[in-house]
Design a protein around this nucleic acid. Structure first.
Length: 335
DNA sequence: AAAGGATCCCGCCATG
DNA sequence: ATCATGGCGGGATCCT
C-alpha cells in the first residue's frame, strides 16, 4: 500500500512531467474518496533548481533523505544524455532494494537505467528516445509502442502525458478502478486512455466529425453485450473490413478486437466493484459469452482473476464509496 | 486438456 | 509521382 510519495529532481527537470506528478499524487482528494499521500519533492542540494525551461526554476526544500521514507519514488523527465548526480542514483537504488515502487516519466527512464534498475526489465520512454535508451542500456527490454510498462515494482512511461496514464494505472492497481476514475475526473482526463495503447496515434485527436470512427467507437462502447464481428463493424462504418482495420489502428492505436475486449474488461471491473452480480452474469453483460471467456481475458489483461479482483476492490461496501470517506475495505479473505 | 474450426489482423500487392 | 483503398494469404489468437 502506498502512503508516501517522493519525486526526485535535479537540474533540467521538465516542468510538465514534474507538474503531472504533483497533480496526481500531491493533491488532496480525500473528500471524493481518494487516498492522500505524504508527498515530497526532493533534490540532492535543496534550493533553487533550474528547469528545462529557460528562466524558470523551482524552489525545492527537501533533500534526498525524504526519499528513504517513500513507498513510491517518481522520476520526472530529466536530461537524458547527461549523467545524473550519483546521490540520486544511490537514492533510487536504495529505494528499490528497500522494496519501494518506482515510476519514471519520459526521459526519467534514463535515470533509472543509470541506476542499473532497468536490466532485464521491460520498460519504455518517449518514442523519440527509445533507440537511445536501448543503446545505452542493452540489457533493458525496451518496448516502443506502449503508453507505459508495469514490470512489477517499476513502472516506466512514455512521453509527457503518458505519465498521467501511468499514474492512473498505479491508482487502479493499488486502489481499484473507482479511485482511479475519481482521480482522473479530478485531473479532467479520460480514466483509461486505452483505446490506444500506442504512443503513436496518427490522427491525434479524433474529435467527433464525419471523418472519424468516433461514432462507431461510441456505439461499440454502448453495446458491449452484443456479439459483433469486425466485418459487421466495418459495414456499419461504411468501409471495407481491410480499410476499417487500418483506420482503426491509425486512430486508436489498437485493433478492433483488442479495443473491444479492453472495454469489456473495464466494464467487468466496474461491475465487480460496484455490484454483486455473479461472474456468469457479468460475463454476459460485458459481452463475453461465458464466464470462462471472462476469466481468460481478465487474467490476461489484469494478471488476476475476477473473484480475486472483487475481493480486493469490490463488495457491497465499495458501492457506497461516493458518500463514505474512503478507506479500502478489506473484504472477505480466504482461498 | 487438446485439437479443429472460426475469426482476426497484418504484410503484400494490384488498383484507382 | 504519391496516396488511400481493398482483396488475398496465412500466421496468430480465440472459441468450443
Amino acid at each position: 500500500m502506498i502512503s508516501s510519495v517522493a519525486v526526485v529532481v535535479h537540474d533540467g527537470v521538465a516542468p510538465f512531467e514534474l507538474g503531472l506528478l504533483c497533480e496526481a499524487f500531491g493533491q488532496d482528494r480525500t473528500d471524493r474518496g481518494a487516498p492522500s499521500f505524504d508527498f515530497k519533492v526532493a533534490t540532492p542540494q535543496p534550493g533553487r533548481v533550474p528547469t528545462s525551461v529557460r528562466g524558470l526554476a523551482v524552489e525545492v526544500t527537501s533533500d534526498l533523505a525524504t526519499v528513504e521514507a517513500a513507498d513510491l519514488v517518481c522520476v520526472p523527465a530529466l536530461p537524458w544524455n547527461v549523467p545524473a548526480p550519483p546521490a540520486v542514483l544511490a537514492a533510487l537504488q536504495a529505494a528499490y532494494t528497500r522494496g519501494a515502487r518506482l515510476l519514471s516519466v519520459c526521459s526519467g527512464a534514463f535515470v533509472l537505467g543509470q541506476a542499473g534498475l532497468l536490466d532485464g526489465r521491460k520498460c519504455t520512454t518517449h518514442w523519440r528516445h527509445v533507440c537511445a535508451l536501448q543503446e545505452q542500456f542493452p540489457e533493458a527490454l525496451v518496448e516502443c509502442d506502449v503508453l507505459y510498462v508495469d514490470d512489477g515494482r517499476i513502472v516506466t512511461s512514455a512521453g509527457s502525458a503518458a505519465g498521467i496514464d501511468a499514474c492512473l494505472h498505479l491508482f487502479r492497481a493499488e486502489f481499484g478502478a473507482s479511485v482511479a476514475t475519481t482521480v482522473a475526473r479530478g485531473m479532467v482526463v479520460a480514466p483509461h486512455r486505452d483505446g490506444g495503447q500506442a504512443q503513436f496515434i496518427d490522427s491525434p485527436i479524433p474529435q467527433t466529425s464525419a471523418e472519424t470512427l468516433q461514432p462507431v467507437l461510441d456505439w461499440m462502447g454502448a453495446n458491449l453485450q452484443c456479439e459483433i464481428s469486425v466485418d459487421e463493424l466495418a459495414r456499419m462504418a461504411l468501409m471495407s473490413p481491410r480499410t476499417f482495420a487500418r483506420r482503426f489502428r491509425a486512430e486508436t492505436g489498437t485493433t478492433p478486437y483488442h479495443w473491444l475486449t479492453n472495454q469489456r474488461v473495464l466494464f467487468a471491473e466496474r461491475m465487480l466493484e460496484e455490484t454483486e452480480e455473479t461472474i456468469e452474469r457479468i460475463a454476459g453483460l460485458a459481452g463475453f459469452g461465458t464466464a470462462t471467456a471472462l476469466r481468460h481475458h481478465f487474467g490476461r489483461l489484469r494478471g488476476t482473476s475476477p473473484q480475486r479482483y472483487r475481493r480486493s476492490f469490490g463488495g457491497p461496501q465499495a458501492a457506497q464509496t461516493e458518500a463514505a470517506p474512503n478507506v479500502r475495505t478489506q473484504a472477505a479473505q480466504s482461498a
